[in-house]
Amino acid sequence: MSEDVPVIETKRLTKQYGDVRAVDSLDLAIESGDVYGFLGPNGAGKSTTIGLLLDYLRPTGGTIRVFGKDPQRAPVEIHNRTGVLPDRFGLYDGRSARQHVSFVAETKQVDDDPEALLERVGLANAVDDNAGEFSKGMEQRLALAMALVGEPDLLVLDEPFNGLDPHGVRRVREIVHEENNRGATVFFSSHVLGQVELVCDRIGVLHRGRLVAEGTVDELRDAAGADDDAVMEDVFVELTDAPIEAGGESR
């Protein structure tokens, strides 16, 4: 996939809820082929940002472009090329894993084999089981399978490691690499720092709705003034412990 424009680009993106500014003048540019980790403490605004990218939420200021298009005006074009694993989602009780994946495939008008996708995420033994009775880890795997339908050019994964056992975590990591090797851009949020370090080319750190640092792991270590062998947790704490400057409202 080659794009002249960034796959995701936000300029002064802002989302205000009453007095609370959940996302504050956020400038992001995710290039084609990136594996971009979106880091931040709980409540930093990660899911809100993803909600804005996917048109769950509408911005109160600034602009968003995904594949150069406005998510509000071109949801069909954008979502045809995007796979999404949302955070805090619910599945359809009474429907099997196969039905969940088939539904996405039918809507995207692709003929992916649901069984193959479910096998890929480790749900080969639960293809026809009721998704309403899945454990959290199985739900997460199913949502990932749904995200992979149609070989999307962009994968948006919101806290993809949630509820997964170590095998599941490793599988997600492998899939991210496989998808990226295929040419997909991957944008994911997480607070599982070790995994982010293992998976991402670039990392953006969000704190109180603002991007406080961005770069490779080494660049973030430098920004935080940490040693070369400092673990990601120390870097993260250092970056998100400082007060926000430049007068930004914060949550």
Partner: peptide
């Protein structure tokens, strides 16, 4: 929360 899948569809 299943609406998140719905809205993410094309």
């Amino acid at each position: 929360g299943s609406i998140k899948f719905l809205i993410a569809l094309p």
